[in-house]
Amino acid sequence: MSTRGINFLDRWMAEHLPNAMTDDPAAISDLVGQMLRAAKREGIDRDEINEEVDSVFEVIFYAMQHREGSRAEGDESDKTAEVALDLLAGRLVRETGITHEQAEELIKQIGSDWDALLREAYFLE
């Protein structure tokens, strides 16, 4: 994934994913469409985002399923889980200055609620 593509996906997810859990494929597809349209407006080609992420749908689906900090169970793709965690942790590190390990631990405890993550990360500084 290009740096520009991964940074865009990371930023978009942090700023636009709703603070609710869902497994509705139509809702996830709508979010993917919104993200791809936003990327296009910024001149970022879909291929830049898809170079390492097999499925943007799966990454967003995973993020939406784990809004409250629950972890994947069963045979969900480990790569998808790692990418989603790494994207969010990287954004949190850049925004707050905490370590990547601290960011991952916060995400595991809190979930992907961006406002809650920021609030807790600032206490770690």
Results as ranks from 00 to 15, higher is better:
Leu88Cys: 11
Glu68Arg: 14
Glu95Pro: 04
Tyr62Phe: 15
Asp47Phe: 12
Asp78Asn: 11
Val59Thr: 12
Gln65Arg: 15
Ile107Ala: 02
Ile107His: 00
Met64Pro: 07
Met35His: 02
Met35Lys: 00
Ala39Gly: 05
Arg41Asn: 08
Leu117Asn: 02
Gln34Asn: 10
Glu82Asn: 09
Lys40Gly: 12
Gln65Pro: 10
Leu88His: 12
Ala81Ile: 02
Ala26Arg: 12
Asp23Tyr: 15
Ala38Tyr: 02
Leu92Glu: 05
Ala84Phe: 01
Pro25Asn: 07
Glu48Tyr: 06
Glu48Ser: 08
Leu92Met: 06
Asp23Trp: 13
Val83Glu: 00
Ala89Asn: 01
Lys108Pro: 04
Ala103Lys: 01
Ser29Met: 05
Gly33Ala: 12
Arg41Cys: 12
Ser112Asp: 06
Leu106Trp: 02
Ala72Asn: 11
Gln65Lys: 12
Glu76Thr: 09
Phe61Pro: 10
Ile107Cys: 00
Leu87Glu: 02
Met64Arg: 15
Glu76Lys: 06
Lys40Asn: 09
Leu85Pro: 00
Asp115Thr: 06
Ser29Gly: 14
Ser70Trp: 07
Thr96Met: 03
Val32His: 07
Thr22Arg: 09
Gly43Gln: 08
Glu95Tyr: 07
Val32Trp: 00
Glu105Tyr: 05
Gln109Met: 10
Glu58Asn: 15
Val56His: 10
Ile44Phe: 01
Ala116Lys: 07
Ala103Asp: 01
Ile44Thr: 01
Glu58Ile: 03
Trp114Tyr: 05
Arg46Met: 06
Asp78Cys: 05
Arg41Ile: 10
Ser77Pro: 04
Ile44Ser: 01
Arg37Tyr: 09
Leu85Tyr: 00
Ala63Gly: 06
Glu76Ser: 06
Ile98Met: 09
Gly74Tyr: 08
Val32Gly: 00
Ala63Val: 11
Gly97Ala: 11
Asp47Ala: 11
Glu101Gln: 14
Ile28His: 00
Glu104Val: 05
Ala89Tyr: 04
Leu87Arg: 04
Gly111Tyr: 04
Glu76Leu: 07
Glu105Val: 10
Ala63Glu: 08
Glu73Gln: 15
Glu73Met: 13
Gly74His: 13
Glu105Ala: 13
Arg67His: 12
Gly74Trp: 11
Asp115Phe: 01
Asp113Gly: 05
Asp75Met: 13
Glu82Leu: 11
Arg94Asn: 12
Glu104Ser: 02
Ile98Tyr: 10
Leu88Arg: 14
Ala81Gly: 09
Leu36Phe: 13
Glu52Ala: 00
Asp23Gln: 13
Gly33Gln: 14
His66Ala: 08
Glu42Arg: 14
Ser112Glu: 05
